[in-house]
Amino acid sequence: MRMLRLAKLGAIWERIEARIGSIFFVQCVALVRVLFIVIGICHWNACIFWLVGLPSNLFSELMDEESQSQYFNSPHWTTILRATDSEKELWRWLDRPLPEAYVFCFYWTLGVMRTMPAEVTPVNLPERLFVLIFMFFALSAFAICVSLITQAFFKKLGTKRRCAPHPLLARVHNRRTRNPNLGD
């Protein structure tokens, strides 16, 4: 059923593109759509990465009592003491304000999609497994997003190059695409 909904959504999107008529606007919308996909991926992974780093989380609740206690007492990326050059005191991500932690997790996720950021290293097996799985997904997702952005850019550039030597033909083409009822 979900696949049928996606197919229906694709058909609706094609009808909207056909009504817009402006290639530039369609390409801008496609670029914005890709950016929203990247933002969505970063948001969800940031939330899950934060959960995985907590000593007690939804995943640890599925464990038995002994495993929960062992997991709680093991090191996590959110509980390791850190120091920065600007701050003399040691701090943990767990003690930081939630908006700051979210921005960091979002930034870290975007970093994993490009390369591996060095600010946080996974310190236990569940964190390492999560990062490993996400890195395989992120590599593919980021490559697809970059190719879609590049494709949109080159489509716009190609249209401009094709029409540049013939401004009159470009104006005629634009009039006909805006009003397809015009005859030859």
Rank of each mutant, 00 (worst) to 15 (best):
P55C: 05
N124D: 03
W93I: 09
T84N: 09
Y71K: 00
T84I: 09
Y102L: 10
W108H: 06
D64T: 03
F142E: 11
E127F: 03
I41S: 01
P126V: 01
T115H: 01
P117D: 09
T115G: 02
E89Y: 09
S67C: 00
W91A: 10
G40M: 09
P75E: 07
M116A: 14
L94D: 15
F59Q: 02
G40Q: 07
S74K: 02
T109Q: 12
G111C: 04
H43R: 13
E87W: 08
S86A: 14
T84L: 14
V52L: 10
L98F: 12
N57V: 04
S86V: 13
N57P: 05
M116L: 14
E100M: 11
W91E: 15
S86D: 15
D64R: 02
E61G: 13
L132C: 13
C47M: 12
L81M: 12
A83L: 10
V131G: 13
A83S: 15
P122M: 03
L94Q: 15
S69V: 02
L110K: 08
M116R: 07
S86I: 11
F142R: 02
L62A: 06
N45W: 01
A143G: 06
Q68I: 04
R114S: 07
Q68N: 06
N73I: 04
S60D: 00
N124G: 06
W50V: 15
R96V: 11
I80Q: 09
H43I: 14
W91M: 13
P75C: 07
S86H: 07
P55A: 06
L98Y: 14
R92D: 10
S140Y: 13
L110T: 08
L54H: 01
E127H: 00
E66P: 02
I39V: 10
F106D: 14
I80S: 00
W50R: 06
A138M: 06
R114D: 15
S67P: 04
E119Q: 08
R128N: 05
N73Y: 13
G40N: 14
S67T: 05
C47K: 07
M63P: 04
L81T: 08
Y107G: 15
E66L: 07
M113Q: 10
V52H: 10
F137I: 11
Y71M: 03
P97E: 04
